[in-house]
């Protein structure tokens, strides 16, 4: 049985229960923010009748969960975050997201099966163990530790990502599965990801052969030299004012906010 996914479909037909996920038990803590990042209820499935072996899906997957075997795409289900990037990118519409009760590892000699899992379950422990260092890493990356990094998962802060990096999750694909980065739109969180890795002095590895799963490096407010105000200010750009605003955000990372963040754990 799955936990309630808060669709509230059960309320739709006034007492006539329609439950999208067959949930009858609400797990303690479900729906409380900070308890998890994302429970994966969907996995990418390849229709081998439609797959033409172009391998584009392998090149866009944020978790590098797809590989080619005998000219067909194969999904490592236990690495699929359900982001839908492959589904959208496939020119032959050979991939779909299907609800899942279990996922398997196609590379394991003995089939590993596990139920849908929650991405980010360890993040609370990581943050708890490395809170000060994680917040300091965020500052070096030019990010407020309490800043939301992912707009899709709704509960992923800069300090979560920094703590995961400090805990050894140092590559873009690992971080997806560790904290839920890139498990939705796959795009908006990329700059924060690269800024934190750079601040930690970690070199980002290249994606698997010929892939374009990610391209490292990103500009920030600090990329604008001081002379830009004079050079481009007449067009309306306000580099110094924006830099000042962003610096004020950073300087507001106070003890009080640490306490707010602690309550989240």
């Amino acid at each position: 049985m799955r936990e309630c996914d808060w669709t509230q479909l059960c309320k739709l037909n006034s007492g006539n229960t329609i439950c999208g996920v067959s949930a009858v038990v609400v797990r303690p803590g479900n729906g409380e923010t900070g308890k998890n990042v994302k429970t994966v209820f969907f996995k990418a499935v390849v229709d081998v009748e439609k797959c033409m072996g172009c391998s584009i899906c392998t090149k866009v997957c944020p978790t590098t969960a797809i590989f080619m075997r005998a000219r067909f795409a194969v999904v490592e289900e236990y690495r699929c975050s359900g982001c839908r990037a492959c589904v959208q990118a496939c020119p032959f519409q050979a991939l779909t997201l299907e609800p899942t009760d279990k996922v398997t590892d196609p590379r394991a000699s003995v089939a590993l099966v596990r139920p849908p899992w929650t991405i980010g379950e360890e993040k609370a422990a990581w943050v708890s163990q490395r809170k000060a260092a994680a917040r300091e890493l965020c500052q070096r990356a030019g990010l407020h530790p309490d800043q939301q990094i992912c707009m899709c998962t709704d509960d992923l802060l800069a300090e979560d990502v920094a703590a995961a990096v400090l805990a050894g999750k140092t590559q873009p694909d690992d971080l997806v599965l560790a904290v839920g980065l890139r498990s939705g739109c796959t795009v908006l969180c990329l700059s924060a990801l690269f800024r934190i890795l750079k601040a930690a002095g970690i070199e980002t590895k290249s994606p698997p052969a010929n892939g374009w799963n990610w391209y490292p490096g990103t500009p920030s407010q600090d990329s604008f030299p001081d002379e830009f105000d004079a050079k481009y200010g007449a067009l309306g750009y306000r580099f110094s004012e924006d830099k000042k605003m962003m610096n004020q955000v950073l300087s507001s990372a106070s003890t009080d906010q640490t306490e707010i963040s602690d309550e989240r754990l």
Partner: peptide, 23 residues
């Protein structure tokens, strides 16, 4: 632009500077 550059536009800088990425 690729997602990485779009992310910088949206998330990494103030709104009166971000459009400079396009320029």
């Amino acid at each position: 632009a690729r997602g990485e550059t779009r992310s910088a536009f949206h998330m990494s800088m103030g709104p009166r500077s971000a459009m400079f990425i396009c320029r």
